[in-house]
Amino acid sequence: MTIWIDIAALDDIPQRGARTVRTAQGCVAVFRTFDDRVFALDDRCPHKGGPLSDGIVHGHAVTCPLHAWVFSLETGMAQGADTGAVATYPARVEAGRVLIDAERLMARRVA
């Protein structure tokens, strides 16, 4: 069952930017793209652990600030020549609020 929880107003996240959500397992980055879609991914690059939330957001992708790996926000997959993936979590916008699937977030502790 999906448990949508309200984590912030959409406007708390800058367009083409990100904020983080702290969880017991580390931070999740919540991105807002140019078209006001939101995406939630682990805030940790699989390469050297860079904080993806501090990267430059372009289209539906983010570039890691440490070594410029690029990840699709939709799939979490590394783009281009690099291989690797970041876990993604369901997130959506409703009435100007950002909702994220808490069950999946909590489930990852088990995984």
Partner: peptide, 14 residues
């Protein structure tokens, strides 16, 4: 504010 997490779920998650 913007330098901090927008939400803290660590308590719920725990």
């Amino acid at each position: 504010r913007r330098f901090r997490p927008v939400a803290d779920l660590s308590l719920e998650a725990a």
